[in-house]
Design a protein around this nucleic acid. Structure first.
Length: 422
RNA sequence: GGAGAGAUGGCUGAGUGGUUAAAAGCGACAGUCUCGAAAACUGUUAUACAUCUAAAAAUGUAUCGAGGGUUCGAAUCCCUCUCUCUCCGCCA
C-alpha cells in the first residue's frame, strides 16, 4: 500500500513510474484521485454535524446540572443525530471504495528497474557456472524420479490429486537434507530461524497482500477463516504486524522452512510434469526487516545469501533483474535467481528476492523508532524484504538433472553428504 | 469439547450514562539543582484522519479488544464475534 498523501501530492511522478509497469494503472490512479475528492468532502460534512451534536450534548449536560429545561436542545440533537445516521453508510461505502482502490495501486518501481513488458525484457546481472555438456542422452527429473523410485506422482494423484507428489527413499531423504542444509547455511549467515504455523488467519493474508487480489490462488480451510500458507513469507512477515520495533535491533533477519500451498487454478497446462509446479511444495524463505536507508544494500546481500546455496551445490544459475512489467505487485525491485534445468534446456526460476520498501510495512503497520519508551521520538515505517532461499523441490529437480550420470544415477553434491550419511 | 474470569494509554491499574483522551503510580523525555551523576522538585508524555497552512501551530472528528445496537450523549447499558487466563476433559 502506498502513502495516500504521497499519491495526491506527488501525482505526476507516481503516474510516470506506474506507467512503467503498465499503462492501465493511469486509470486506477485517476479513479483513486476522484474517489478521494468525494471522500474528503463527505468527511467534512460528517465531522461538522458531529461537532454540532457533541456541542449540544455538552450543553444538555450543563443544563441538567443547573436543572434547566432541555427539551429544545434534545429536539435539535435528535435531528442532527438522524442526519448523521443517514450520512454514515454513504461515508462507509466511500471509505471502502477508497481503501480497495488504494490496494489496487501497486508499488512504484525503483528508478534503477529497467523498462520492459515481460520476462523477455529482464536484465541478466550475473552468471555462475556453465550448463554442462552431457555426452549421453539426459533424462528429465521426473523420469529419473520414477526409475530410481524416489518420486511417485501416480500414487500421489490417487491419494490426493494431480500436482502432488510422494518423495520416497533417497528422494525423501534428499528433500530433508536440502531443508537442513539451507537452514544451517542461512543460520551461519546470521538469519534467526523461525518455524512458523502453516495455517494463518485472514488478516495475515491481507497483511502481505495475498488478499484480496489473489483469493483464488489460496487454499482456504472450510470450517473456519484460516488459510494454508502459500509461502512462509506470510506468517514470518506478519510476526511483527502492528508492532513498533527498536531501531538498534535492525536489521532483523529470519530464515524459515515451511510447506507452501498454492491452488493456482489458472496455471493448468503449464509445467504439468515433475516438481516444478505443485499444489504443495517445500521452501526455505529469507525475510528481512530493516532501516529504510539500508534496504537496497540488504537486498544485494539477501540475493547473495540465496545464491550461495546453488554455489555450494555447484549448480549453474544466473541472476536477472526483473523489468518493470514483470515486477511483482508489491515489489519495488526484484532479482530472480534462475537455475539451469537441462530437461527444459533453459534457466528456471528458483528464487525471487524483493525489496518491498515500506509498501508491505504500511499495510502491516510495522514501524521502528530509536527508543521505544521515548514518546517524543517519531516512529517510521521499516522496509521489508524477502526471497526464497531456496525452493526445495526445484532445487532437488535441478540436482537430479544436473548431477545425473550416464548410468542413470545421481552424483550427490559433496556438501550434502554429511546430511545423507547415516 | 465443558465451566468460569477477563481485555482500558509504553507498563501497572482506577473508572458502571454527561466538560473523561480518560485518575493514580511506574517508566520515558525536558528543565531546575550539581563539577558531573544520583536523589529531589517542576513540566511534558498516544495515534490516525480532515480543515487551514509554504510549514508549524491551531481547530475539528475518531479511537478504552473488534463489529453492531439503545440514547440528545457510551470506556460505562444490550447483542455478536475475536483473543487471553484459570479449572476440567481429550489428546501428540
Amino acid at each position: 500500500m502506498l502513502d495516500k498523501k504521497m499519491i495526491v501530492n506527488d501525482r505526476e511522478r507516481i503516474e510516470k513510474l506506474l506507467k512503467k509497469r503498465n499503462e492501465k494503472y493511469c486509470e486506477v490512479l485517476d479513479r483513486f484521485i476522484e474517489i478521494d475528492k468525494v471522500r474528503r468532502r463527505n468527511i467534512s460534512w460528517y465531522e461538522e454535524l458531529k461537532a454540532d451534536l457533541n456541542k449540544n450534548s455538552r450543553l444538555i449536560a450543563e443544563a441538567k446540572i443547573k436543572k434547566q429545561n432541555v427539551d429544545l436542545l434534545t429536539r435539535s440533537s435528535k435531528i442532527l443525530s438522524e442526519q448523521i445516521k443517514k450520512l454514515e453508510p454513504e461515508l462507509k461505502k466511500l471509505e471502502e471504495d477508497f481503501n480497495s482502490n488504494l490496494l489496487e495501486i501497486p508499488n512504484i518501481p525503483h528508478e534503477s528497474v529497467p523498462d520492459g513488458k515481460d520476462e523477455k525484457d529482464n536484465l541478466e546481472i550475473r552468471k555462475f557456472g556453465e550448463p554442462k555438456n552431457f555426452n549421453f542422452e539426459i533424462k528429465s527429473h521426473w523420469e529419473l524420479g520414477k526409475e530410481l523410485d524416489i518420486l511417485d506422482f501416480e500414487r500421489a494423484s490417487k491419494v490426493t490429486g494431480a500436482r502432488f507428489v510422494f518423495y520416497k527413499n533417497f528422494g525423501a531423504r534428499l528433500e530433508r537434507a536440502l531443508i537442513n542444509f539451507m537452514l544451517d547455511t542461512h543460520y551461519q549467515a546470521g538469519y534467526r530461524e523461525i518455524f512458523p504455523p502453516f495455517v494463518v488467519n485472514e488478516s495475515s493474508m491481507y497483511g502481505t497482500g495475498q488478499l484480496p487480489k489473489f483469493r483464488e490462488e489460496a487454499f482456504k480451510l472450510e470450517n473456519n477463516n484460516y488459510f494454508l500458507i502459500p509461502t512462509a513469507e506470510v506468517p514470518v512477515t506478519n510476526l511483527y504486524r502492528n508492532e513498533t520495533l527498536k531501531e538498534e535491533n535492525l536489521p532483523i533477519k529470519h530464515c524459515a522452512y515451511s510447506a507452501c500451498f498454492r491452488a493456482e487454478a489458472g496455471a493448468a497446462g503449464k509445467d504439468t510434469r515433475g516438481l516444478i509446479r505443485l499444489h504443495q511444495f517445500n521452501k526455505v524463505e529469507l525475510v528481512k526487516f530493516c532501516h529504510p536507508d539500508k534496504s537496497y544494500e540488504e537486498l544485494e546481500n539477501l540475493t547473495l545469501d540465496a545464491e550461495k546455496i546453488l554455489q555450494l551445490l555447484n549448480i549453474p544459475y544466473r541472476v536477472v533483474k526483473l523489468c518493470a512489467g514483470d515486477l511483482g505487485f508489491s515489489s519495488a525491485m526484484t532479482y530472480d535467481i534462475e537455475v539451469w534445468m537441462p530437461s527444459y534446456n533453459r534457466y528456471v526460476e528458483i528464487s525471487s528476492c524483493s525489496n518491498f520498501e515500506d509498501y508491505q510495512a504500511r499495510r502491516l503497520k510495522i514501524k521502528f523508532k530509536s527508543n521505544l519508551k521515548n514518546k517524543n521520538d517519531k516512529s517510521e515505517y521499516i522496509h521489508t524484504l524477502n526471497g526464497s532461499g531456496l525452493a526445495i523441490g526445484r532445487t532437488l529437480a535441478a540436482i537430479l538433472e544436473n548431477c545425473q550420470n550416464s548410468a542413470g544415477k545421481i552424483n550427490t553434491p559433496d556438501i550434502l553428504k554429511k546430511y545423507l550419511d547415516l
